[in-house]
């Protein structure tokens, strides 16, 4: 029983704390850090400094030495004053979430933040991000506006709400840490991971509504040209020779001039797993888009008529990303 009780208690405390934090730091897109938002505690180093002053105090006592006392008390005062300096280094900082770029599952979602402060209240060594993933350090000294991109690894498709962003600083002496959280109400899209189910491919009646029977996907007959590699391009399309020359990835594109209307159809796929279907469809959307072929998407609940445009691609990917969610 005891082994059960402990995590429950911990969990309860943690959720209480979260509740309190939510109340204190409501979700927002923009926040200016002030006394209410900033937390501040001494660090381990402060403990070290305290030990040092204790040692100096004993030294002062034993040798009855006034100047040793003076050094001891000066460091003690520094320990206290530093808290205010650390606080000042965060106070007045404005954080604004600009947006999140969509990404594919498994990749890093990029969140763009804008930092600003008053020109005469410079900020040094401010750390931003998620301590366990990506923590960046910025200075707002030369300019009082700054944009920062933070990366967060995604795992699952759908709507991604970034966990609370930590903003903290140890400046100047590292004896105290001041921190706050930014809980943004913004969310980004995570598309399914594009994954062509190659092993199964020969068995699939691909592009079911295409009657002519010759193989289109990838339009592998007529070489069309070379363009920059884009996520989702099949490895066999990569122009390896060019990669060897330039070190940059390029893909070969193939054009099929007689491309008829193409449907990417959920029902036509034989896999039982929904996620596998979505991944496959996602990769096909990218392929079709890359080949500038008109395509339509048909998944349960959403039907998008064949078309070719950047916006169409985004609509299709969004539909795939949000499939099965409440939206």
């Amino acid at each position: 029983m005891e082994t059960h009780a402990k995590p429950t208690l911990l969990f309860r405390v943690k959720s209480q704390l979260d509740q309190w934090l939510k109340h204190r730091l409501p979700q927002t897109r923009e926040v200016t850090l002030r006394q209410r938002q900033i937390f501040i505690v001494p660090t381990q180093l402060a403990l070290g400094m305290l030990l040092l002053t204790l040692l100096l105090f004993i030294l002062g006592i034993n040798f009855q030495n006034s100047l040793v006392y003076a050094v001891c008390f000066w460091l003690l005062a520094l320990l206290v004053l530093n808290i205010l300096h650390t606080y000042r280094n965060l106070a007045g900082l404005t954080l604004k979430v600009i947006g999140i770029e969509p990404c594919f599952a498994g990749e890093n979602a990029l969140l763009t933040l804008e930092l600003s402060c008053e020109a005469d209240k410079k900020k040094y060594a401010v750390q931003l991000g998620w301590p366990e993933h990506d923590l960046s350090e910025v200075n707002l000294a030369e300019s009082n506006h700054l944009r920062v991109q933070l990366a967060y690894p995604t795992q699952r498709r759908g709507r991604w709400t970034p966990p609370r962003i930590t903003v903290r600083t140890h400046y100047p002496l590292g004896l105290a840490v001041a921190w706050s959280y930014l809980l943004s109400d913004i969310s980004g899209l995570v598309y399914p991971k594009p994954q062509e189910q190659t092993a199964l491919q020969p068995n699939i009646p691909n592009h079911s509504e295409h009657s002519s029977g010759h193989e289109i996907p990838g339009g592998s007959h007529d070489f069309g040209g070379i363009r920059d590699y884009q996520p989702g391009d099949a490895p066999r399309r990569i122009h390896w020779a060019k990669y060897a020359q330039t070190g940059e990835l390029h893909s070969k594109t193939f054009i099929d001039y007689s491309s008829p209307e193409c449907w990417l159809d959920w029902d036509a796929l034989p896999f039982p797993d929904a996620e596998a279907r979505l991944s496959h469809l996602c990769s096909q959307v990218l392929t079709c888009h890359a080949e500038q072929q008109e395509y339509g998407l048909n998944i349960p609940g959403t039907r998008l008529e064949p078309q070719w445009s950047e916006a169409h691609k985004n609509r299709c990917l969004t539909a795939l990303a949000l499939f099965g969610t409440l939206e």
Partner: peptide, 26 residues
């Protein structure tokens, strides 16, 4: 400037902190 700002507190502690007799011979 930090050390200068510390001076008032340092002096206050210097003046009021208890002065103890030596704890052990060194």
């Amino acid at each position: 400037s930090m050390l200068l700002q510390c001076l008032p507190l340092m002096l206050l502690i210097f003046i009021v902190a208890p002065r103890l007799p030596p704890l052990f011979m060194l």
